[in-house]
């Protein structure tokens, strides 16, 4: 028995849903990777393949009214918070049906209705925004909590320090989730941060900090569950550091000279999806066949998202100046 074993007692449909979500994130980003390689999508993108468990595990512990702020590597957060992959893909294709009507692209997808206050192209830029959303919840007694996703790189931005301190002194309902994927663009976290764990910084702000295996869905969910309870009960913010790894490069043009193929293999052996799927099969919750079906169906779903995107119209030039001001 470990602390995370409660998860296996959850209803089968929930467990399968989480597996589906992780596969959806995986296939979405694999497809985007393929399209960039073929030059079918322009601009740039940041893929979260290998980090699916932190996005899905964190959002699985939230309620519909709860909010998140996301990062430049945000497709997983988006899907886990309930976004429609069709409209996400359409956004990457720059189409009118996309979440941002084709004006935002990969780095700016927001799904306000689902509580996703948006990805952010500025490292650390979304952290104060999450604190503001939490402030609204507290002042209006709306009862929602806000999860602020950010990376190891953002932990060295001044906005992180300022915002976490502000949230701490005001006891705001916000959970800071640092997805430590080991690298900034190329800067290894071990060279850029002197301490062992970014979560250790929590004590500097007088809030609880937890380190978790970001590739283990059950572990992420267990830590999140506790943090959500703490924060929702008015005790203030929590800092969680999920240690994980991005399998792909930083963005589309990354030769990955700053790390070895051996290191990549080591992390790929800790594939969060396979880990969870195997556990479900071993425990007799799903069969090998059912697992295959989930894998296939989620892949087919992304193919349909691509079709939707490709068939969607380009935005009219008449919309260019719309929405600069409300």
């Amino acid at each position: 028995m470990t602390q995370a074993d409660w998860i296996w007692k959850e209803p089968k449909e929930k467990l399968v849903d989480w597996l589906e979500q992780m596969w959806t994130v995986r296939w979405f980003d694999e497809k985007v990777d393929e399209f960039f390689a073929k030059g079918m999508i322009h601009g740039t993108t940041h893929l979260c393949v290998g980090q699916e468990a932190s996005a899905v595990g964190v959002c699985a512990m939230l309620e519909g009214k709860d909010k998140i702020t996301s990062t430049h590597r945000g497709h997983g957060h988006c899907i886990a918070k309930g976004a429609d992959p069709d409209r996400m893909m359409a956004e990457l294709f720059g189409r009118e049906t996309g979440y941002c009507k084709g004006k935002g692209g990969s780095m700016h997808i927001a799904d306000v209705e689902k509580g996703n206050l948006g990805a952010n192209g500025i490292v650390g830029g979304g952290i104060p925004l999450a604190v503001g959303a939490a402030l609204t919840s507290k002042m209006r007694q709306e009862g929602y909590i806000t999860v602020c996703f950010f990376g190891d790189g953002a932990a060295n931005e001044g906005s992180f320090h300022e915002a976490v301190n502000l949230a701490a002194i005001w006891d705001l309902p916000v959970i800071f989730v640092c997805e430590n994927n080991q690298y900034g663009m190329s800067g290894p976290v071990k060279d850029m941060v002197k301490i062992e764990n970014i979560a250790d910084r929590a004590s500097g702000y007088g809030i609880p900090g937890h380190v978790v295996d970001g590739n283990s869905l059950p572990e992420v969910m267990t830590v999140m569950k506790e943090a959500v309870e703490y924060t929702r009960n008015g005790h203030g913010p929590v800092l969680i550091e999920a240690k994980t790894y991005r399998w792909k490069g930083h963005s589309k043009s990354d030769a990955k000279k700053y790390r070895t193929r051996e290191e990549e293999k080591e992390w790929k052996d800790k594939d969060p999806i396979r880990f969870f799927q195997d556990a479900l099969i071993e425990r007799g919750i799903i069969t090998q066949e059912e697992a295959e079906t989930v894998k296939k169906e989620t892949k087919a779903q992304i193919e349909r998202s691509v079709e939707f995107a490709e068939q969607s119209p380009e935005p009219s030039e008449d919309t260019l100046l719309e929405d600069v001001y409300a």
């Binding site: 206050l117 104060p128 999450a130 604190v131 503001g132 959303a133 609204t136 209006r140 300022e162 301190n165």
Partner: peptide, 27 residues
């Protein structure tokens, strides 16, 4: 609660205002 004295953190003050505005307040 409504006259919020802040630490010396201009980025966080401004960002928190933006986040609260985005979620319905008028900071």
């Amino acid at each position: 609660e409504r006259i919020r004295n802040t630490p010396i953190s201009e980025a966080a003050i401004t960002g928190a205002a933006i986040g609260s505005a985005l979620t319905g307040m008028k900071p």
